[in-house]
Amino acid sequence: MSLGNIVYGDITILNILFAILVFFIGLIIAKLITNYLRRSLKTKLNKDRLELIIKIVYYLIIMITVVWVMSSLGIKLSGLLLAGGFLGIIIGFASQSIVGNLVSGIFLTIEHPMKIGNAVNIDGTVGIVEDINLISTRLRTFDGLDIRIPNEKVFTTSITNYVSNIARRFEYTIGIRYEDDAQKAISIIREFLDNESFVLVNPAPLVFVSKLDNSSVNITVKIWSPVSQWYSLYMRLLWEIKDILEQSDICIAFPQQVIHFADKENAPTVKPGQ
């Protein structure tokens, strides 16, 4: 069997091998161009936009290559479209979930509820968005795990984006003793927050007595900070507030119960020895 043997029509084995070679060259060119784009535009574009452009360029090159390869093999596009139509119906029925994921992926791209690099919570899974494909979304959890979520699930579930706004609020509840001066505690906390760079001036922090609890007077502190800084601030400030209150002899209350004895005045006194 020689390379000149005709397989069908005028197409020889050599033609098929050449087409396969062209296809792989197309793949290599697509890879080279996308790598070049990634390197040269890395500092000039946001990561999610860059990835979108790279994907479009990659699949465009692949598509052009495939069309060229097919025409060189004598496969007519009109026939392919007709066959593709039938094939699409068959595949559509056979793989509804894949098509569902694909459609969801397209709608996610349009709606844009998150970007690559955002910290999000998708149906209870918290992590950083690593990639948004047409079929699935990849998250890297804060434990370093890689999670792939089908786009259909992403699209139909609730998404909490922790960093879509430029600032966010967090709060503490600090319980002090009843004998401590709550107004003084509020003043101390306010003064302390005024010296914190990442506690926003506006919206101003709120510090107020929020509850007269069983064992403590609860002071609620609500703080706005830049979204990029809030977690480090959140981890640090509570202990520092506790420290600064204790320096002014205002202490965190422990759970306690005061018991009053009924009819204490007339209760018989028992002397030692009786």
Binding site: S164, I166, A167, R168, L200, V201, N202, W224, P226
Partner: peptide
């Protein structure tokens, strides 16, 4: 240094 927000968290400026 201190920071503030001008406008809303959604579309304001830090």
């Amino acid at each position: 240094p201190r920071y503030t927000l001008y406008g809303e968290p959604r579309n304001g400026f830090l």
